[in-house]
Design a protein around this nucleic acid. Structure first.
Lengths: 337, 337
DNA sequence: TTGAAAGCGCTACCAT
DNA sequence: ATGGTAGCGCTTTCAA
């Protein structure tokens, strides 16, 4: 690896001061166009690359945005959110530092600390816990922190989250309009904000229509597919299957459909099934689950944009952004027979 | 956002020089323990966070590693590779800058350029093209570049790749030992290194056993599930179904199984099916596809470790690392009847 | 139009 | 044990 040329290297070659080089490369108005041309020429000739770290040190700016997630992949929406953040950040000339906490709070803290030390201009956090005081302690009001993801406290100063009550509205509305009256909501543990909202929304929407809100819960977030199968098996055993089921996750819905299948039943013929998230169905073009789409890209875009304006001190006192899911009708819901 | 304290702030409070503070905080041997204790106390009191950018500027070190991928998620192995890279980098005190090129070469260049400007110590690239001259042009021998991923030229100086020929060895061996003699390999377009290796390996292994290597190819990498279904449909129509099929991707295998199902056939009862990659099956605990596992975490770990040693100038002239897939026997392969 | 001087926050080197 | 000085690569300010 060779040593990288600096503006001084160029200055020496051009026979001017390094200040002139600095200005010329930034296309300052007070440098003659000949000088500029000559300097730019030399710069490309010797393969000069500006040192952003040095520039940022001197301008007290940051060229990077930090992001911390529990993990990439593994049935999370962070892939899509990150892809969008990366794109928008790049458009604006920013790099993204990404850290995977592996759902370990200590590692999360470590990433946070390293990013603060590296002076990211803002931090976008999808925490693995709902208590995020450890993050705030580290960032100490010195760098803006925005929260995304299901664990986010809706009272956070900067947060982008999804209205899961509205998901219930869409789900029940859709099923009701298809003639369903015996509708169940399937959820899993542990009880968290996300699940609670869906549940509340479900109760509201069902009650509004004078229907009893059947709610069933089992299993754990780490394997909602199994939870879906389990609940379905139970209801079949009790001969208590509803005509429609809304599941708190897509995988849970897939589990429901699996279980139905193993009993010779199917969706939507015997039971209508709706999922939630619309994750990874880009991968499975043939999985035709009716579901509620979470606007990952929009959330990502909103997060960077807020981060950018916060970094540039267009001081927003607070900004809580609420996103809505949308209904994607595929082929697992149909008229009630 | 308040202004961040610096070592000078601490120096002023402690009534010592900023040099002493710098040394004390780095636990230098030539500072009295009392002074150290006092300074450390002040530092935590006022919430001091060292500025890594400034330190790196002065030590000519880099605290970050760059990584560029075509996209996160979307049926790629980069999730798992990144998670591991992030963990190992953090262990060593490094941040990872990650960029998603969205399979756009211009965006890939932009990310690369920004990362070089931000002085990443090394760059790990999973390019979206096999010609990576644009990357090298930008990095100009000034920062080490390691390549991972299917498009990697095996002759690259620093590369971590998988021996897909060996995948064929494992697949054919397994099927042969189960008594299968009529074995087909299903692939998709476009023709690339990865596919070619699997194909070559397949031909070798079959020929070695005196068996005709049946190879079928259709569709496109973007939807291998459909390709799998299509080929299966064709062979069923021609009444030419083999007793075992090895697919170039897991999704393709899922497609095969789907198509079989729709004809009342199943794996392994009627046809044994093997996939490739072992991707996202952590998500689907009930998908019990026999497949070839790609060691993503190992590749990630090897990549960071090489990057770190390269950054610290333990100059390796070159380092081509080859990884092997391993057979994961689940429930879609069985004895030939 | 150009550049000398100072400074961003830190470390290295060498006196004291 | 402590600190002055210089310098990392860059920008800003201001004088020439």
């Amino acid at each position: 690896m060779e040593k990288k040329p600096t503006i001084k290297t160029i200055a020496k070659i051009a026979g001017v001061s390094h200040v002139t080089v600095s200005k010329a490369l930034r296309d300052a108005p007070d440098i003659s166009s000949q000088t500029k041309a000559r300097i730019v020429q030399i710069a490309t000739d010797i393969g000069y690359t500006p040192n952003a770290a040095a520039r940022n040190l001197s301008t007290n700016n940051s060229g990077t945005i930090g992001m911390i997630v529990p993990a990439m992949g593994e049935n999370t929406a962070y892939n899509a959110i990150f892809n969008e953040i990366s794109a928008v950040a790049a458009e604006n000339g920013y790099c993204v530092m990404l850290g995977s906490s592996h759902r370990d709070i200590e590692l999360e803290k470590k990433h946070c600390k390293m990013m603060v030390e590296n002076r990211v201009g803002a931090l976008i956090v999808a925490s693995c816990t709902s208590d995020v005081s450890h993050i705030k302690d580290i960032c100490k009001n010195m760098i803006p922190v925005l929260f995304v993801g299901g664990k986010t406290d809706p009272n956070e100063k900067y947060s982008m989250l999804c209205d899961y009550r509205y998901s219930a509205t869409l789900a029940v509305e859709h099923l009701y309009s298809l003639g369903h009256r015996d509708i169940a909501f399937f959820a899993y543990g542990p009880d968290n904000l996300t699940i609670r909202q869906k549940e509340e929304g479900f109760v509201t929407e069902m009650s509004k229509r004078g229907l009893p809100p059947k709610i069933f819960k089992t299993g754990h977030a780490s394997n909602t597919l199994a939870a879906g199968m389990e609940l379905t098996e139970q209801l079949i055993a009790q001969n208590n299957l509803p005509t429609a089921i809304w599941c708190a996750s897509d995988l849970m819905a897939v589990g429901v459909i699996n279980a139905l299948k193993s009993h010779g039943l199917s969706a939507p013929e015997d039971v209508s099934v709706i999922g939630h998230d619309d994750l990874y169905f880009d991968l499975f073009p043939d999985i035709t689950l009716t579901t509620l789409h979470t606007p990952m890209a929009e959330i990502g875009r909103a997060a960077v944009n807020l981060a950018l304006s916060l970094m540039n001190c267009e001081k927003e006192v607070e900004s809580r952004q609420l996103f809505r899911t949308s209904l994607v009708v595929r082929h697992t819901t149909g008229n009630c027979k």
